[in-house]
Design a protein around this nucleic acid. Structure first.
Lengths: 140, 140
DNA sequence: TGTTATTGCTTGTCATTTACAAGTAGTGAG
DNA sequence: CTCACTACTTGTAAATGACAAGCAATAACA
């Protein structure tokens, strides 16, 4: 399906969200930024899941076009590009946390630190806000 | 990518979840079951998003293999097959609700009834539990 | 009991996307 | 002014997706 016909525009929030990040890689990149604090192409590339370089480049461009992330040359090192979450991107934190809980319940292989889980169960909202703040504070 | 190599198995809950429902259609089907109460192939097929019949058949089989849904012939009408969410599937309700909130915030075209949004904001947990219960109670 | 309609699929074809490998371009450091 | 680092682009073969058509089992009806 060509990219420009990708949008379903049915008014359904689930369809809209899937048109935005409904693929195998977008949320992995967003996780890298939101949870792991990654900011560069190289960091994404060396993540545990071994994303292909062309797919990574494509997704970064797409996520930027969708307003989920922004890019900027590193002022301190001109050959480095810094990717950061926008507010729209950082607001995916609550979804991310619910996904973590679900996977932990149903995947024996999933590893999540106990303190993370406790934190989510005790105060999802506050934890999401903290992740969002941290992601946005790397801005200048 | 061949289906059997699809699993990343990195221990990351986000990657696990995406390996389960990280595509353009799986969550749409689950939404149909969880929110709209759809149960049959024909209902899914006639949904607003116009899913292709081969993709639908493939996803239903995959979701069943993953333990997200179960299928059974309708005892009252032998040419009909009833698809239902398992507990694993119904437990996706909290994720679904967070997605609804996010899309409503960022997609001007998204239509969600005000009472739904109020219900989510007021008591996410209780609302998710209600959706789950309703989905599982269609069982016999 | 034979015909027709309903329901849930399968098959075929072509376009698009993915994974993997290799190569290129701009920047900075020595 | 060469060399390495960082962020990409390009090429290719295989897998997946969308669209259209057809098939099979069950049930309703004559």
């Amino acid at each position: 399906m060509p990219r420009e016909n990708k949008l379903r525009n049915t008014g359904c929030p689930i369809a809209f969200a899937l048109d935005t990040f409904g693929d195998r890689w977008s949320l992995v990149i967003i996780r890298d930024m939101l949870i792991k604090g990654f900011q560069t192409y190289g960091e994404f590339l060396e993540g545990d899941e071994n994303i292909s370089t062309n797919i990574l480049a494509d997704r970064l461009q797409e996520l930027e076009a969708l307003g989920i992330i922004s890019k900027q040359r590193d002022p301190d090192n001109g050959r480095r590009v810094l990717y950061r979450l926008t507010e729209k991107g950082a607001d995916l934190a609550p979804i991310m946390l619910e996904i973590i809980c679900w996977s932990r319940k149903y995947d024996g292989n999933t590893k999540v630190q106990d303190r993370i889980v406790e934190r989510i169960e005790k105060d999802r909202h506050g934890f999401a806000a903290e992740l969002k703040k941290r992601a946005l504070d790397t801005d200048k």
